[in-house]
Nucleic acid binder design. Sequence first.
DNA 1: GTCTATAATCAGATAGAC
DNA 2: GTCTATCTGATTATAGAC
Lengths: 204, 204
Amino acid sequence: MRTEVTAKPSFKQQMLKAREAAIVQTVNRLLAEKGFDAMTVDEVAAQVGIAKASLYKHFSSKEELAAAAMVSVMHRAQAFIAELPEAPPLQQLRAVVRWILEVKLAGDMPSLPSQNSSLRATLMANTDYMDGLMDVSDRLGAWIEAAQASGDLNPKLPAIAILYTCYARACDPVLEFLRMGDLYDDAQIIELVLATCFEGLNAG
Amino acid sequence: MRTEVTAKPSFKQQMLKAREAAIVQTVNRLLAEKGFDAMTVDEVAAQVGIAKASLYKHFSSKEELAAAAMVSVMHRAQAFIAELPEAPPLQQLRAVVRWILEVKLAGDMPSLPSQNSSLRATLMANTDYMDGLMDVSDRLGAWIEAAQASGDLNPKLPAIAILYTCYARACDPVLEFLRMGDLYDDAQIIELVLATCFEGLNAG
DNA sequence: GTCTATAATCAGATAGAC
DNA sequence: GTCTATCTGATTATAGAC
């Protein structure tokens, strides 16, 4: 009966984790749809199907909710990068940017106001988030420098500027603008933005 | 005495216009600093130095305040475009994008949440704003198509995608990111973003 | 038109029973 | 841990005197 008594709490914890995952997924979608300020905790609780007070047992503030969503996407990014097949650096970088655009178009890319200071503080204090961010930045940074050395990326641009430009695709309004026009499907939109990002607007 | 009685209200109206201009300037700056949601009407009134109730005599809602700020930048954009010296289309377009980046770095580019529906409605109902937007879009659109025809801009990209990509520089977070790093001054940051926008990340 | 004072609402967070 | 009910503070907007 040893297995039973140890399995019971484990099962309970699994349930908890599952519920927290559901919360994070809902927050993720709401952050992508409406942004941090417009998202209300009441809304999150309603869509998850639990009481607001229960939410606060899992996450102690609205900022923590947002941070959990950011950690979630960061982990998904790490998983995506880890499973990338071997390829030239530029191709890897392009694949990551494409993934960012796909996640955004799928409505799963949380968007946070870069100015909100309490939110910034919460994020910077979150070691899961910071570790993930640094890990991803290191990997992308290595690809960027390798691609510059091999003459695939413009060596005159600072690597950090290239990194930021890639990250910035996560909140690029061009995707929504093009979608509103109803002239291009999602796949075409992604190709267009990828092209403007890497090849620029100028003629080749 | 004819001049006196007609001059009096004209002067009064000038004062009003001046005060409204001060309000709009304050709103402009606050929208650039904190965004629409984080900006409060109390804050605006305090910084202008008038009572909140007085603000509402000039603008009937927070949305109207934001719309006035958008009309203001739109008019400044039109004035900038009108005074541009004759030059090839690509150069004109680049000048406008450079102007956008300069205004943003100067902290004078209001940033609105693209999702807020009541705000969208207010903006779309504002004929001053819509007229300005269409006028600017027409002028930029003509330059874009001319530059594509002359082989300066990539003719494979839809003109509308190029237009949106230029507009999107008004909310490009790369500017703030690079500024935070403290490695480049404002002039360098503008050149970097201009280069990535037009020449792309790839090597020439 | 400007002010002080206040209404009305909404959202983040908590108390306390179960 | 989950719920209902509530507190607390902030924010948009307005009433009414001058």
